[in-house]
Amino acid sequence: MSKAHVYKRDHINTDEIIPARYLNTDNEKELAAHCMEDLDNDFVKKVQPDDCIVAGDDFGCGSSREHAVWALRGAGVKTVIAKTFARIFYRNAINNGFYLIESDDALGKIKDGDELDIDFKSGLIKNTTSGIDITFNPLPDFALDIINDGGLLEHITKKG
């Protein structure tokens, strides 16, 4: 079960997810301590393991810093549900075996604090707080192959 942290915002960028003043480290725990700091200073206090973020369009725009994915993962975030994702962030997430969900409906059907039961393979979000089901298109096969292998480097190592 995932608790939703809803941000009714478009263009949540990597500077907000992990400000560059913390990029002097790539330690996931240190990054996680500052996750979403410039957007929501209380985020790291609220977030629990397996929680998810729900947002609008263009999530993860800006810098190519993979530190954004590591900060979210390190803070316990299991997935991000957004209308659309910026492409480098999207790629970085897949390369780290981190699921993303693209959904036009989620932002309108999920409230902050709702409990979600997510099936990534069939493409179903059960909002157990409201009782509303939301379907989504699962990630494409090539992306699922990378995620199932545990990330890009594991995937190419396996391929030889």
Binding site: R65, I88, R91, N92
Partner: peptide, 12 residues
């Protein structure tokens, strides 16, 4: 532009 994992893959 790419992230660190892609950079690792490209380097290797």
């Amino acid at each position: 532009g790419i992230g660190s994992t892609d950079t690792a893959a490209a380097i290797a």
